[in-house]
Simulated scan of single mutants.
Amino acid sequence: MPDLVAIASPGRRRQIIIRSAASCSPLGGALARAGILVLPAPPPGRREGSPAGEGTTNMGLQPPQGSCRGGVPWGAWGTVCTALCCADGLVYALGGMGPDTAPQAQVRVYEPRQDCWLSLPSMPTPCYGASTFLHGNKIYVLGGRQGKLPVTAFEAFDLEARTWTRHPSLPSRRAFAGCAMAEGSVFSLGGLQQPGPHNFYSRPHFVNTVETFDLEHGSWTKLPRGLRMRDKRADFVVGALGGHIVAVGGLGNQPCPLGSAEGFSLARRRWEVLPTMPTARCSCSSLQAGPRLFVIGGVAQGPSQAVEALCLRDGV
């Protein structure tokens, strides 16, 4: 369960990606100076509606649906690998892995001014570790996992109507893929390719696949081999930065995490080498702020406390 959550300031829209942030404590002061709220997660066993620091011995307590009495319900934090997204100063937590390791479909929204969580309509497809991004008044949820199986679902939650819409599924079965959006298209990159349901002899393998979804026309396109990423990678950081779709770090066929970075130029329609990340790692959190993509924590040879940023401006 994460013990640190970075939230965009009220009134600003920003996607956030958070895994375990225990290794990210050096970033707390920098986030505060940048106007980003740092919210500590409640300790296990905290009662719904209880003030900070007050606990309970009833570890099985689950708050009622839609409860909000000034506290953070413990039930909202009963999952790990939850996908997070910010919209207008609110934090949305989607899915996750429950205490029994089963994928969850629950959706919660955190209201900082009232300091409480509210329940929202559940996702059509339970999953954890999904990619999320905000576009207009919708939160899009892409991929994720159910146990060892990758999820190909692509779904959108309308923040105003509070309803879910299903979009065409991902063409390929890939776990630990990266996702970003630019110029009206969703980019799904890389990952660990899983064998199809009728291919029992193939093994999972790293890929450099690039698939794009046109939001206007509602269709997927698999880019040709010449437009695939330079490196095969999974469990990496992705962002839309300076006119590029950026891929940083992750795991590949090498015996240790990757430090390489590359960007797909939207203007030149090609992948280009970017400066290598000083600390090679995977399983990182990330936060995009202006022209900078912060890569936070993760795993190098062991848990990493590195906080490094890639700066890439338009036209570079």
Results as ranks from 00 to 15, higher is better:
F213R: 06
V210L: 14
F187T: 09
G178N: 06
E183M: 09
F187R: 05
R162M: 11
A161F: 03
R173D: 02
A161L: 13
G190R: 04
L189G: 02
G190A: 10
A161Y: 01
H167A: 06
E211R: 01
R173M: 08
V210E: 08
P197W: 07
F176P: 02
T209Q: 10
S172R: 13
V207H: 08
S172I: 07
N199T: 12
P171W: 00
R174E: 03
R166H: 07
E183P: 00
R162C: 13
G184T: 13
S169K: 10
G184L: 11
H217G: 01
L192R: 08
K222L: 14
V210A: 07
E183Q: 14
F200W: 06
A175N: 00
G184V: 13
R203G: 00
P195A: 05
L159W: 00
T221E: 14
H198D: 12
E216N: 12
A180C: 14
P168Y: 03
F213G: 04
P197H: 01
S185E: 11
T209K: 03
W220S: 11
Q193D: 05
S185M: 15
T165F: 02
W164G: 03
Y201T: 04
A177R: 03
L159R: 00
F213V: 01
Q193M: 15
D214T: 10
V207T: 15
Q193L: 15
A177M: 09
D158C: 11
P195K: 00
N208E: 09
M181I: 13
E216S: 14
W164H: 02
L192E: 08
V207N: 10
R162V: 05
H217E: 11
P197I: 05
Q193P: 02
V186Y: 04
D158Q: 07
E183V: 09
F213K: 02
F206N: 05
T212H: 06
F187M: 07
S169L: 00
R166M: 11
T221F: 12
G196S: 13
F213Q: 10
L170P: 00
D214M: 02
Y201R: 01
F206S: 01
L192C: 12
H217L: 09
S219K: 11
F206Y: 15
E183D: 14
M181H: 12
V186R: 02
V210G: 09
V207P: 04
